[in-house]
Amino acid sequence: MSGAKALPTALRSWAEREVGVVDDVRDASHPRENSRVWELVRADGCRFYLKIAPKARMYERETLAMRHATPALGAGRAPQLRASSAEHLALLTTAVTGRPVKELPLTAAEEYEAHRQGGLLLARLHAAGDLTGHWRREAEGALYAAAQGVDKQLEQAGDRLTPTERALVRNLAAELRMVGPLPLGFIHGDAWPRNLLWSGSAAWIDFERSRFAPVVQDFVALACGVWADKPRLRTACFSGYGRELTPEEGHVLKCLSGLEAVSALTWGEAHGDPYVTARGRRTLDRLMAGVFA
C-alpha cells in the first residue's frame, strides 16, 4: 500500500524467534501517525499481529489484559499474547477470526446477535482479573479522576463549546465527584464497533485502554455512538451482559458522556476525523436537549 509503514528489522527478527519464519508482512495500522500494527503471515497461513504501543502506559495495560483478563472470554474471543517486549513496547499476538462489526454489511438479526455476544463477553471481562490492592484503589478513584480532568478538557476544546455547553459539562463533572460506590471490574476501555469482530461469533480486540474501573465506563463509547442511532443494539448488549445498568450507573453514564463529547470534539478536529467530531457534537446536542438516555 502507498505510504505503508515498514516493520523494523529488529522486531521482525524478534517475532520470528517466537512464531517461526514469516512469509508475508502487511501494514495493518490505523491511518494516524502513532498507530503501528503489522499482520504477520507464515507460509502455512497462520496469522499473527505485531503492535507497537503508542505509550508505555498502553503497553502495560494491554499486556496486563492479555495475561490476566482476556483468557476469561474464551478461545477465539480475544487475541492471545505470544510474546511482549518492554524495550520496544511491542506485543505479538494471535489473530482473531472476523472483521469489525463497523465494516460489515450485517442483517439486522446478525447485528443484534453480534452486540448481544459483545455484551456477554464484556460481562466475562468485567468479572476477570484480581481486583485487590492498588487496582481496587485505582478503580474506586476513577470517576473522581475523570471529573478532575474537566478543566483541561474544556481548555483544549476552546470555542468549540458555547458558554452554556461548558457550564453543562462542568455540572456533569461535579456530579461525578458525589457518586457513591458502583460495581467495579476489568473494563475494555475502548468498547465500540471498530473493536468488536464478527464471524458468526463475536470477539473483542485492542485492549490498550483496559483497566480496573467502574464497569459503566465501558458503555460510554457505545452510548455516544451506535446506540444513539440504533437503540435496539443497547437492548442487545445488555441482554448478553445479563443485567441493565442501575439508576446510579445510568446517571454516571450521562455524566461521563458529557466528558466524552468534549474529548471527541477536540480529538476529532485535531486528527481530521469527521466521524469522531460529529459524534461529540451530537452527544452534546442530546445532553443539551435532555434526551440522552
Rank of each mutant, 00 (worst) to 15 (best):
Q156V: 14
E165N: 03
A146S: 15
R170C: 07
Q117M: 09
A157R: 01
L172D: 01
G141E: 01
Y144D: 15
D151N: 12
G141Q: 00
A167W: 00
R137G: 08
G118C: 11
T132I: 13
H134A: 12
L168V: 05
R124N: 02
L154Q: 04
Q156K: 14
G149Y: 03
T132Q: 14
Q148M: 12
D151P: 07
G158D: 08
L154K: 02
N171A: 15
L122D: 05
G141D: 02
L161C: 05
T164R: 10
A142T: 05
E138M: 12
G158P: 10
L122Q: 13
H115D: 12
R170P: 01
Y144N: 12
D151V: 07
L154E: 04
Q117T: 05
R136M: 02
A145P: 00
L161A: 02
L125M: 14
E165K: 00
Q148E: 14
L122S: 14
K152F: 10
R116K: 12
T164H: 02
G141H: 00
Q117N: 05
T162A: 06
T164N: 01
A142C: 04
Q156T: 10
Q156H: 15
Q156C: 11
L122G: 08
A127S: 13
R124S: 13
G133E: 02
D151C: 08
L121K: 06
K152Y: 09
A127L: 08
T132E: 09
E138K: 15
V169N: 02
W135F: 09
E138V: 00
A127Y: 07
G141C: 04
A157I: 07
E138T: 03
L154C: 11
R124T: 11
H126Q: 12
L154N: 05
R160Q: 13
E155M: 11
H126Y: 11
K152L: 14
H126T: 06
D151S: 12
V150T: 10
R170F: 13
A167F: 01
A127R: 15
L131C: 04
G158L: 00
